[in-house]
Simulated scan of single mutants.
Amino acid sequence: MVRILVVDDHVVVRSGLIALLDGKHNINVIGDAADGDEAITKALELKPDVVLMDFSMPPGKDGLTATIELKKLLPDTEVLILTMHDDDEYLFRAIQAGASGYILKSAPHEELITAIQSVSQGNAYLYANATKRLMSEYLDKLKQDDHPGPYETLSEREKEILSWVAKGYSNKEIAEQLVISVKTVESHKSNLMEKLNLKTRPELVKFAMKKGLLNYE
């Protein structure tokens, strides 16, 4: 029996998931939570096999932060992200945080059940389109490894700022961390984006992910 904890800020969604899953397909819902803080508390108390985790849960602690903390506290508990965000940036952040799976709320019920069973057995689970995108990213990385790209042209400061930007820090916050002016941060950011031929922040996050520059420790 797979013991799961359901985490979502919407009561109706939690109730629906519990009704769908509990006692069926070798799944036992042992608890539920409305935000990340409650999820951590409940997980420490109940020791679930799988936490079915929503990504965004305002105004409480979000699923990404909760996942990072849970994997440190309960490394044997698997986290399956259930979200409406069909977006590479969210996907890569979830994987980096330690989630074992990522599935959309729009997925058929059968796929959700398959995902829960898969991660409970120690496997990774991504919905079909995400898998295709990751494979594409992997193949691109192999090509880049064979042919060193523009990353090597960045200065050490530009690489540093790239990492901070990818982690979600604002120009002002980066300036405070590095003890430089906001204008200097903006200049470095503009230069590195041009060197890497990146146009948007999601593109920058994916690039940083491939280079192993994201670190949530």
Results as ranks from 00 to 15, higher is better:
residue 99 A to Y: 03
residue 83 T to M: 02
residue 86 D to Y: 04
residue 92 F to V: 15
residue 102 Y to A: 00
residue 97 A to P: 14
residue 82 L to Y: 12
residue 93 R to Q: 13
residue 83 T to V: 13
residue 83 T to R: 14
residue 97 A to C: 06
residue 112 L to N: 00
residue 87 D to P: 06
residue 95 I to V: 15
residue 93 R to M: 14
residue 93 R to L: 08
residue 95 I to M: 11
residue 108 P to S: 08
residue 109 H to P: 09
residue 84 M to I: 10
residue 106 S to W: 05
residue 86 D to T: 14
residue 92 F to L: 15
residue 103 I to P: 02
residue 100 S to G: 10
residue 111 E to V: 15
residue 98 G to A: 02
residue 89 E to T: 06
residue 96 Q to A: 11
residue 89 E to A: 07
residue 101 G to K: 11
residue 78 E to L: 13
residue 96 Q to C: 10
residue 80 L to F: 03
residue 107 A to R: 00
residue 91 L to P: 11
residue 78 E to I: 04
residue 96 Q to H: 11
residue 81 I to E: 01
residue 107 A to Y: 01
residue 80 L to H: 08
residue 109 H to G: 04
residue 97 A to H: 14
residue 84 M to T: 15
residue 87 D to I: 07
residue 98 G to C: 14
residue 104 L to N: 08
residue 95 I to H: 03
residue 103 I to T: 05
residue 79 V to L: 05
residue 88 D to A: 01
residue 94 A to E: 06
residue 86 D to M: 01
residue 89 E to Q: 14
residue 99 A to C: 13
residue 93 R to D: 00
residue 105 K to P: 03
residue 96 Q to S: 15
residue 87 D to A: 06
residue 86 D to Q: 15
residue 91 L to M: 13
residue 86 D to K: 13
residue 90 Y to K: 03
residue 103 I to N: 08
residue 85 H to P: 12
residue 95 I to F: 09
residue 111 E to Q: 09
residue 103 I to Q: 06
residue 97 A to D: 09
residue 87 D to R: 14
residue 103 I to M: 06
residue 106 S to G: 06
residue 79 V to Q: 01
residue 90 Y to C: 09
residue 90 Y to G: 05
residue 104 L to W: 09
residue 90 Y to R: 13
residue 92 F to S: 00
residue 87 D to N: 10
residue 83 T to C: 09
residue 84 M to P: 13
residue 104 L to K: 10
residue 95 I to E: 05
residue 112 L to P: 05
residue 110 E to A: 10
residue 97 A to N: 10
residue 103 I to Y: 13
residue 94 A to F: 01
residue 86 D to V: 08
residue 81 I to H: 00
residue 84 M to G: 10
residue 84 M to V: 15
residue 112 L to E: 05
residue 81 I to F: 07
residue 88 D to P: 12
residue 77 T to L: 14
residue 88 D to V: 09
residue 80 L to N: 09
residue 104 L to S: 08
residue 94 A to H: 10
residue 88 D to S: 10
residue 92 F to P: 06
residue 99 A to H: 06
residue 77 T to G: 11
residue 90 Y to I: 04
residue 92 F to R: 08
residue 79 V to G: 06
residue 108 P to W: 00
residue 87 D to S: 11
residue 110 E to T: 12
residue 87 D to M: 10
residue 92 F to T: 09
residue 96 Q to M: 13
residue 86 D to N: 12
residue 94 A to K: 04
residue 102 Y to H: 06
residue 85 H to A: 06
